[in-house]
Amino acid sequence: MPPNALVIDDDLDVQLLSKMLLTQHDYNVVTASSLGELARKPELLNAELILLDLGLGEFTGLDILDYLYDLRLKASILLISSCSEETAAHAIAAGKAKGFHMLGFLPKPKLLTHLTAFLEPFKNTLKAPSRDDLANAIREDQLFLAYQPKIDLKKGNIIGAEALIRWQDPQRGVLCPDSFIPLAEQSRLMIPLTWRVIELAFQQQAQWQAQGWLLNVAINIPAAFIQAEGVLEIFDQLAQNSGVELANITLELTETVGVDCLGYARHVLEALRQRGCKLAVDDFGTGYSSLTQLYRLPFSELKIDRSFISLIEQDQNALAITLSIIDLGKRLGLTTVAEGIETAKQYDILVEAGCAVGQGYFMAPPLTADAFNAWMCERSQTAPLPS
């Protein structure tokens, strides 16, 4: 199937030229003129390659990058503009900081003669994985978990870890979730993928338990999981097979937008809590997590999104929101967890505010199970292991 490309430019002539050139390189091409058009037609964003103009009238290419980032879309982006090299360099740096594959900057006057030079290396890269690839990965045991330590911020002790899915693809190497979670969502593979994650996490927690390490393992679950047929029966069977202690399992609900029936969701979540699991609202403060759901569903933990934590040193609004979430958690009797802590200053601010738990690269990155075990043993030289 030909790859998809999107041209975002408010100049019709540039749109037509870009479409013609990309079609010659076997792309399916769609075009958009503004941020508003993309908001009205989200289907346009199903593209592996984006040609992006920086000057788009009322909005800019930077606004487009923010929008793509908010949607958690990943694409390769080539800037096409009449701006200066300095402005383009700033935009490319902004795109890279958000995790986009920035192909570079092509001034519009050179579009006709130089586009091929940017596309050839890109065309030779491996294609994005397909639904069949992901389905095969789930069947063939190509998935594994990395574990990011969670720390009691006040005491400095490790209390558990968040399980983060990885895909060891035979051709592409190790793929992070951003590379395949959207595919799983679009391909109706999130439920089998989630069951595999739960199975692996249960096995690991049981191993740590056998070693005498009472570590809580946090597992991300999508809203669709709650509504899956037979969810409690399958969950019980996996728990029984692994020997896991469910009191040391936290289930993090990652997308409360999908919780259409709060009554049924409460029934399932209450049943999971009765089995001993803790329940967390993930990425609170972003997306669709609502106070109504926080009020009606039986959560025990509130995770503050990294987008706020990353800014608390320099942005008073981000700091105010973070402090408010921590205060809200205290008032509701919920454990607050900060994710994405990257500096000592962020750590200190959160401790002073009374945030209970944190995770992030300042303490430790996500680690394979073997690396996590080694990290734990190394820490045991200076701090006791949880038992």
Rank of each mutant, 00 (worst) to 15 (best):
220 N>F: 11
194 T>M: 07
240 Q>P: 01
190 M>Y: 11
219 I>L: 05
240 Q>Y: 03
130 S>T: 15
200 L>A: 01
223 A>K: 03
200 L>N: 00
164 L>P: 01
142 Q>N: 15
131 R>Y: 11
210 A>Y: 01
229 E>I: 09
157 N>F: 13
165 I>E: 02
165 I>A: 14
140 E>A: 14
187 S>H: 09
206 A>P: 00
195 W>C: 05
199 E>Y: 01
150 K>G: 03
195 W>N: 11
147 Y>Q: 07
156 G>E: 12
232 L>T: 03
227 Q>E: 12
171 Q>E: 15
183 L>R: 03
229 E>N: 05
182 P>R: 09
212 G>M: 09
139 R>F: 09
177 P>S: 07
234 I>M: 03
225 F>L: 08
226 I>D: 04
202 F>C: 11
169 D>I: 09
240 Q>R: 10
143 L>P: 10
155 K>T: 15
133 D>K: 12
222 P>I: 07
164 L>N: 05
220 N>W: 10
153 L>Q: 07
201 A>C: 11
218 A>F: 04
205 Q>I: 01
195 W>S: 05
158 I>M: 15
232 L>W: 07
160 G>W: 05
215 L>S: 01
157 N>K: 15
206 A>G: 05
194 T>Q: 07
146 A>M: 13
211 Q>V: 00
166 R>T: 07
136 N>C: 14
141 D>S: 13
213 W>H: 12
228 A>E: 14
236 D>E: 10
221 I>K: 04
201 A>T: 03
170 P>K: 12
209 Q>H: 14
230 G>Q: 02
161 A>I: 00
153 L>S: 06
156 G>C: 15
202 F>H: 10
202 F>L: 11
223 A>S: 14
226 I>S: 06
235 F>S: 06
132 D>A: 15
238 L>K: 12
206 A>I: 02
234 I>W: 00
237 Q>L: 04
223 A>R: 06
238 L>R: 09
208 W>A: 02
237 Q>P: 00
209 Q>C: 02
205 Q>N: 02
195 W>D: 06
212 G>Y: 08
229 E>D: 13
159 I>T: 12
205 Q>L: 00
188 R>G: 11
188 R>K: 14
218 A>P: 04
164 L>F: 11
214 L>Y: 10
150 K>V: 12
210 A>G: 05
151 I>G: 12
223 A>C: 09
225 F>T: 10
142 Q>S: 04
200 L>V: 01
146 A>F: 14
133 D>C: 07
155 K>N: 14
220 N>G: 06
194 T>H: 04
171 Q>D: 15
183 L>E: 09
156 G>L: 11
230 G>T: 03
131 R>F: 08
215 L>P: 01
216 N>P: 00
142 Q>V: 03
206 A>C: 06
141 D>K: 14
154 K>C: 13
148 Q>Y: 11
138 I>V: 14
151 I>T: 08
151 I>H: 05
150 K>H: 10
132 D>L: 13
240 Q>F: 05
219 I>C: 02
156 G>P: 04
178 D>A: 14
210 A>K: 15
144 F>Y: 13
193 L>S: 10
217 V>Q: 02
236 D>N: 08
182 P>I: 04
142 Q>G: 09
215 L>V: 07
219 I>T: 00
217 V>R: 00
165 I>G: 06
231 V>C: 05
192 P>D: 07
231 V>Y: 04
131 R>V: 13
194 T>E: 06
174 V>N: 03
143 L>A: 01
216 N>V: 06
146 A>L: 10
180 F>H: 09
